[in-house]
Computed example of a mutant assay.
Amino acid sequence: MRVVSLVPSLTEAVALTLPGTLVGATDWCAHPIGLDVPRVGGSKYPDLDRVRALRPDVVLLNVEENRREDADALVAAGVPVRVTYPRTVDEALTELAELLTELGSPGEPEWLVAARRAWAELPEDRPPRRAVVPVWRRPWVALGRDTFAGDVLRRLGLTNLYADHAERYPRPPLNELRGRAPQLVVLPDEPYRFTANDGPEAFPELPCALVSGRHLTWYGPSLVEAPAVLAAQLAAPVTHVAG
């Protein structure tokens, strides 16, 4: 089986579970560290000629990560694709198990078993906190309904104030984000790289948790440590005081 992955989290999952199967990945596939495979450009604009030249048996895609036109072009060229679209932690765990089996894994890898355990053992009595989750600025984009990251945060005790929005990624103005009166502003470091100096200043006097985008949005081996990593980051917010 020759696999090209255009999804960083799936690249990590396949590389760790089925060494030697992966024959190509995107420039953004940074895990596992030291991964040495041919690169085919970005997730949004891959070099499809380069992908085809690798003669893959299947190309791994994700509805949010990749463009429909690239998937259609690969299919039209006779290249099989496998598209994933988990919107909850449980769906991610199920899709990962199914995908790895399809690619030749004889059983669930240890990391997937550990991920199931890590998420099953989360306490269920966490006091809820109201939160907004910007994932981009200029313009501001927030986490809305029916997203994998939203389910991750829900399971960690947060109530996303845009979870009932008609759009999955609404674009509310900054004054509306502030006006929702969140108890916490969650600022991931991807896709927009929020930092202590770029993000909290937009929400003066509000606690802002700077969190790992990889642990919030990736569905792969990072799921093992995601509950502990995110819980610690959510528990240590910073507050910018307007002056």
Rank of each mutant, 00 (worst) to 15 (best):
P46Q: 05
A77G: 06
N66C: 04
L103A: 09
H31T: 02
E64P: 02
A30L: 14
A53G: 07
V79K: 09
D49C: 02
Y45P: 05
P46V: 09
R67N: 00
I33C: 09
H31R: 14
E65M: 04
L54F: 00
A92D: 05
L96A: 07
V113R: 13
P38I: 01
A114I: 01
R68F: 11
C29P: 03
A15G: 06
L99D: 11
V83E: 10
V37L: 04
V89S: 00
V23Q: 08
L112A: 07
A114W: 02
T84M: 14
L48F: 11
G20M: 13
L10Q: 14
D27Y: 04
G107L: 06
W111I: 05
L16T: 03
T101E: 14
E95D: 15
L99M: 15
A30K: 10
R55H: 15
P19G: 04
V83D: 11
P106R: 06
Y45R: 13
A53I: 01
E110W: 13
D47Q: 00
T21H: 15
L74N: 07
A73M: 12
A30D: 14
V37G: 08
P56I: 00
W119L: 04
T21C: 14
T11I: 08
R116I: 02
A77M: 02
S105G: 09
A73L: 13
L61F: 11
L10H: 03
E110P: 03
V40P: 02
G41H: 07
L54T: 11
E95M: 13
R67F: 00
R67T: 04
V23F: 12
V63T: 11
V23C: 10
T94S: 10
P109R: 07
V59P: 08
D47F: 10
V51A: 11
G78K: 01
P38L: 05
L6A: 02
E91Q: 13
W28Q: 14
R50M: 13
E95Q: 15
D90L: 01
V7M: 01
P106F: 03
E121W: 06
N66Y: 01
S5N: 05
V113M: 11
